[in-house]
Amino acid sequence: MTREEKPISDAIDTRSPSVARMYDWLLDGVDNYAADRKACEDLLEIAPSSKVLARNNRAFLRRVVRVLAQEYGIRQFLDHGSGLPTQDNVHQVAQRVDRSCRIVYLDTDPIVLAHGRSRLDQNDRVAVLRADMRETEAIFGTPEVRRLIRKNECTAALFVSVVHCLKDEDVLPMLAAVKARLEPGSFFVICQLVSDRADIRNRVTDLMDRATGGKWGRVRTADEVRAYFDALGLDIIDPGLCDVTDWRPDSELMPRPKADDWVEWGGVGRVPIR
């Protein structure tokens, strides 16, 4: 490890909330415990639209993977902070476009690894890796990544609803380290929880920091998320950076319920081809 931190434990701590398991509960999943449910109930008191937000975010993930595979020919995906498996995971969406698509899922939660390997590892083009997403050098050195994320091929690096889990000092170094390992023409998908309301930002950040034992970053503003794309020098593709509910919706006729207290905000940027 490159940081003065405790190594990742294999033990499943059911007494402390997990971000992955909380997200699972918000999506009406069953892979969660009483501590996760209690933390979600506390979260809903602060931000009542959190369930709507989680569903919108998952729909965005499905759309963006499909667009990158269909319209841009991306065939390899690195999903940082993938969370627990749910309906229409990244490999299912991508491999419906092309069976040759290759996906590596990354998460630190041991329950993600346990469930992921049983539900996601469905063919030899999918791998589930237990890793701290900040440890880019170690991740790219694993057999799974060396086998599935090929050099000289464009990659989609997914950071969907995970950057808010990181401290400010970790975000840009991690993103820059990933960019240094990707081919020009690769894509970054970055979105995170943002709010225009300082009370929401502060209260949710305090709640999650306490609930996760400090394993949390903070709710940010849209301008702060935009700064990530600017710092990386990415070319932002249409429709730009926005509430992810508005990112290439499947139909303009379909109702798109929105969260009104906070939103998942971001988009897709491409590493310039020079």
Rank of each mutant, 00 (worst) to 15 (best):
A222K: 15
S195K: 07
D223G: 07
G213P: 14
L193H: 11
W216Q: 02
D206W: 12
R203Y: 03
V194H: 03
R203N: 13
T212F: 15
I190P: 07
R210P: 10
A231C: 04
D238S: 15
A227Q: 13
G185W: 00
P184N: 12
V225R: 12
D238Y: 12
G213T: 14
Q192M: 14
I237Q: 04
Y228E: 07
G213Q: 15
R226K: 08
D223M: 09
T212H: 08
A227V: 00
L207H: 01
D223V: 04
G217D: 03
S186V: 05
L182Q: 06
R220N: 02
A198S: 15
D235R: 14
Y228V: 02
F187Y: 15
E224N: 01
R201H: 09
V194C: 05
S186I: 11
A198K: 10
S186P: 12
D209W: 14
A198F: 00
D235K: 04
W216F: 15
G233I: 15
I190R: 11
R220G: 01
V219D: 11
F188S: 00
R203E: 15
D206I: 00
I237G: 04
D196M: 03
F188D: 06
I200K: 10
I236V: 14
R201S: 02
T221P: 02
I237S: 07
R203I: 09
T221E: 10
D238L: 06
G233L: 12
W216D: 01
R218C: 03
A211D: 14
V189E: 07
A222P: 04
S186E: 09
F188R: 07
S195F: 01
R218K: 13
G185N: 05
A231S: 03
L207Y: 02
G213W: 15
G213A: 10
L232W: 11
D235M: 02
K215A: 11
T205H: 08
F187L: 05
A198R: 11
A198E: 12
D199Y: 03
K215Y: 15
T205Y: 03
S186D: 06
A211V: 13
K215N: 15
F187N: 00
P184L: 03
I237L: 13
I200D: 06
V219N: 06
Q192N: 12
G217S: 03
G217R: 13
G185R: 01
I200W: 07
G213V: 13
I236Y: 10
A231R: 11
E224A: 08
D235Y: 12
I237C: 05
D196H: 10
M208Q: 11
G213S: 12
R197N: 12
I190T: 05
G214R: 05
A227W: 04
R197S: 05
L182N: 09
Q192H: 12
F229G: 06
R220W: 12
R226H: 08
L234I: 02
R197K: 04
P184K: 02
G214N: 09
V219M: 13
A227G: 10
P184Q: 03
